[in-house]
Amino acid sequence: MTDIDVDVLVAGAGPIGLAAAIEARLEGLSVVIVEPRSFPVDKACGEGLMPGAVAALERLGVKTEGASIAGFRYADERRATEYRFRGQAGRGVRRTALHDALAARADELGVARVDARVGTIEQDARGVSAAGVRASWLLGCDGLHSTVRRTAGLEQAAKGSASKRRYGLSRHFAMAPWSDLVEVHWGPRAEAYVTPLADDLVGVAVLGPQLTSFDETISEIPELARRLVGAQPVGSLRGAGPLLQRATARTSGRVLLLGDASGYVDALTGEGIRVGLGHARAAIAAISGVDGHPAAVYEREWRRVSRDFRMLTGGLLAAAQSPVRPLIVPAARALPAAFGAVVERLAR
């Protein structure tokens, strides 16, 4: 195996795969995306872009339409606290709209697509082959249950009780948003994220243990249940999980893992897209750079980009699954400066 078809082969055309392809083209690299699903690609998620994600998309030349997000509000049954971003606002964007905008930019830059799945992966010192394409590098951007991660031998077996694994459910409602904040409602067993998406559309995502019921969770949050009385659901209920996924490393030879495929903690703090966009930028910079071996450079940069997300989200998740869960909102309200500092750090 000697001939190289393209510089970069991207497995997965979700937002991070498309962003990586755009990054590569902006660096003058040739790119092919492998994706078996029809466009636009949808997903169960909160759909709130943090200010850092909005800025990253603008740098890529990707324009998104949606609702402005001014900050976060945490609430339980008795109390609430909020924090408004300093500087640039975030944006609530329907996942299919985000995907359309990224796909349009990729098409504009000449990114080629192959309608296929990545099965076997073969690589040597000069390149890697998958889905009938020979490339210098393969970027695994194929999500939580990544085939690339597993095939490349980077899958880490799940640890701990199945009762600790968490799942996501999401649904849209045809109604005007009542706030310009992302609301996180802390129910007895699960959390509900409410995100303004348009003048007439609100997204609600529920995060909780296995077999969590969307409707039961909403009914256990009186404030949110009252808001949604009479609201017309739009589309079907979507699910994802288990959310906790780990990789033994982010690289294996000429294979690099990005976004959810590289390991995922939880969606609690809502900045997965921002972190994934950081992975895309770091991966292409490592491939294009001259300082050190690209795989080693990317592994180091992945840790830097992901550090705050993994530490802060991991800590919050541990608290959410412990006896101190009822104290999370009271603590955020009692320590507004600390709450704001955490939100601001994750947002950027």
Score class of each variant (00 low, 15 high):
1 M>A: 13
3 D>P: 04
4 I>N: 08
6 V>E: 11
12 G>I: 07
15 P>H: 09
17 G>N: 10
17 G>E: 11
17 G>A: 10
19 A>L: 06
29 L>K: 12
33 I>A: 11
34 V>A: 15
36 P>L: 05
38 S>E: 14
39 F>D: 10
45 C>P: 12
46 G>D: 08
51 P>G: 09
55 A>M: 06
56 A>D: 10
57 L>S: 10
57 L>P: 09
60 L>G: 03
65 E>A: 13
66 G>Y: 09
69 I>W: 07
73 R>W: 04
75 A>W: 04
78 R>A: 11
79 R>P: 02
81 T>A: 15
82 E>V: 01
83 Y>K: 00
84 R>N: 08
84 R>E: 11
85 F>W: 14
89 A>F: 09
92 G>E: 11
93 V>A: 09
93 V>P: 10
95 R>I: 09
96 T>M: 08
97 A>S: 14
101 A>L: 07
101 A>R: 00
102 L>M: 10
103 A>G: 06
105 R>H: 03
107 D>W: 01
109 L>M: 06
113 R>F: 14
114 V>D: 00
116 A>L: 10
116 A>T: 06
117 R>T: 13
119 G>R: 15
122 E>V: 13
123 Q>Y: 06
125 A>L: 10
126 R>N: 12
133 V>F: 04
134 R>N: 12
134 R>K: 14
139 L>Q: 01
146 S>R: 01
147 T>R: 14
148 V>N: 02
148 V>S: 04
150 R>N: 08
155 E>W: 11
156 Q>T: 05
157 A>P: 01
159 K>V: 13
161 S>C: 04
163 S>Q: 14
163 S>K: 12
166 R>F: 03
166 R>S: 10
168 G>P: 05
168 G>H: 02
168 G>I: 11
170 S>N: 14
171 R>D: 04
175 M>W: 04
178 W>S: 11
182 V>I: 15
184 V>L: 15
186 W>P: 00
189 R>V: 09
189 R>Y: 08
191 E>D: 09
205 A>W: 00
208 G>E: 03
211 L>V: 07
212 T>H: 05
216 E>C: 01
219 S>R: 14
220 E>Q: 14
224 L>I: 08
226 R>Q: 13
226 R>H: 07
228 L>V: 09
228 L>A: 04
230 G>Q: 09
232 Q>W: 01
235 G>P: 07
237 L>T: 12
237 L>Q: 12
237 L>D: 12
239 G>H: 03
239 G>R: 13
248 T>C: 05
250 R>K: 09
254 R>Q: 10
255 V>L: 01
259 G>E: 07
262 S>W: 04
262 S>C: 10
267 A>Y: 00
269 T>Q: 13
269 T>N: 12
270 G>T: 03
275 V>H: 01
276 G>H: 07
277 L>A: 06
278 G>I: 03
278 G>R: 00
292 G>T: 05
295 A>Y: 03
296 A>C: 03
298 Y>W: 05
299 E>C: 06
299 E>M: 05
301 E>N: 06
309 F>R: 15
310 R>C: 02
329 V>W: 05
335 L>T: 12
337 A>L: 13
340 G>Y: 11
341 A>C: 03
343 V>I: 14
343 V>W: 01
346 L>D: 02
